[in-house]
């Protein structure tokens, strides 16, 4: 058991060192979001800068991709999800009521 744990820990340590963007894979801290969102505003948009591309594995964790996601998620998407859930729940309730009382309205 100890041997297995030590092997697992070794693998984790090696993975931690190898993975280039390991810090960004850690559980997301919402308090960091505001800092990360502010970053693009401070970076001057110079054409000579290296632009992260979709094929760059590190690019996915750059703040530039965090910003639109953080802005897109808000209210309309939440309302869309709430609307769909409410309809699904209402249909479920109606179905249950109908099964309990199939002759209702006859």
């Amino acid at each position: 058991m100890k041997k297995l744990l030590s092997v697992l820990l070794s693998v984790l340590c090696v993975a931690w060192m190898i993975l280039p963007a390991s810090a960004d894979i850690l559980p997301f801290d919402p308090s960091e979001l505001e800092n990360e969102i502010e970053v693009p505003e401070e970076i001057p948009a110079e054409p000579d800068e290296e632009v992260p591309t979709a094929v760059d594995p590190e690019a996915e964790d750059q703040p530039l991709t965090v910003e639109p996601t953080a802005e897109r998620i808000p209210v309309p998407v939440v309302i869309l999800c709430v609307g769909v859930v409410v309809i699904a729940l209402a249909l479920l309730v109606w179905l249950i009521v109908r099964r309990r009382n199939p002759k209702k309205g006859a």
């Binding site: 998407v77 869309l80 609307g83 769909v84 309809i87």
Partner: peptide
């Protein structure tokens, strides 16, 4: 009510 409820998520999806 069901028909009316379906309108709003559809409209939001269209806006997005």
């Amino acid at each position: 009510g069901l028909a009316a409820s379906a309108l709003w998520p559809g409209t939001i999806a269209g806006m997005l």
